[in-house]
Nucleic acid binder design. Sequence first.
DNA 1: GCAAACGCTTGCGTAACGCAAGCGTTGTTC
DNA 2: GAACAACGCTTGCGTTACGCAAGCGTTTGC
Lengths: 145, 145
Amino acid sequence: MPKLLCHSDSSPCPLAHALDLIGDRWTLLIVRDLMFRNLHEYKDLLNSFEGISTNILADRLRRLVQAGLVKSVAHPESKTRKLYYLTPSGKSLIHVMIEIVKWSDEHVGTAKIPPDVAGQLEGNRDEFVRKVLEKLERWEAEHLA
Amino acid sequence: MPKLLCHSDSSPCPLAHALDLIGDRWTLLIVRDLMFRNLHEYKDLLNSFEGISTNILADRLRRLVQAGLVKSVAHPESKTRKLYYLTPSGKSLIHVMIEIVKWSDEHVGTAKIPPDVAGQLEGNRDEFVRKVLEKLERWEAEHLA
DNA sequence: GCAAACGCTTGCGTAACGCAAGCGTTGTTC
DNA sequence: GAACAACGCTTGCGTTACGCAAGCGTTTGC
């Protein structure tokens, strides 16, 4: 596993420590797919929008598992496949994701939130969070039985 | 200026576009210093906790300025020095920063929010945001006159 | 007028990444 | 039951980004 730069030794700042985990171009995209796009298998993550390369995906999944944000179980129908899913720590990144997306929508502006999601985010955002988390729990109830 | 990986071509996702700007280990730390730590000069940013190297700092500042998150003005007392400060777009990253710090405090746990700040963040977070933004505006009133 | 400060830039070695091929196991087809 | 494909990775190689340290042009302080 490549080592990646680590601020944690020198910095007393929680932001810096968080960036050691999620401060790169790929990690949060994987979390997004696990959180919002209902993707749970390696091949699906690999074929997501941005075209992550396979070694990087393997590396980031390993880091996420090691950091306790993601877990995996054997696929119930196949011995070669795995199912990846977010732990509570991983799920709690939802608030970070939402803020980044809102900020991007307002200030980067080159990609917009789909109108239906935008509608859910305005007004009652807790409701949106609840819906997403419920969906994840339903998936878990179905697959981790 | 090194080119850095860019998702924006392939992805319809606002998160991916945001990560093109802030998805690295240094950018948000610079924003933090400009936002919370009252640092406004190159040398101060350079000497911040994490020890960014000078070429990376120059590069990131250039990107941030180009993206419209940061501006600079000549130092009123010196022709060699500059003052860097956040634009409204940059300031609005405060919500992202707060969520990351809260998440880090709860789930990474290797660096804690200072107790006084933690107190401010609990309960009335809007109040905290307002205080921070007011402080930045006071700085601007004083230096951009 | 000389040395230090300041905001960078440059050069070099190392680490991370993109790409593509390969590998071991399992599942499928005939 | 043998050949082939699917799957989750790993490996190797060339390229890009980064850490480090030195240097540079201008300005400032003495």
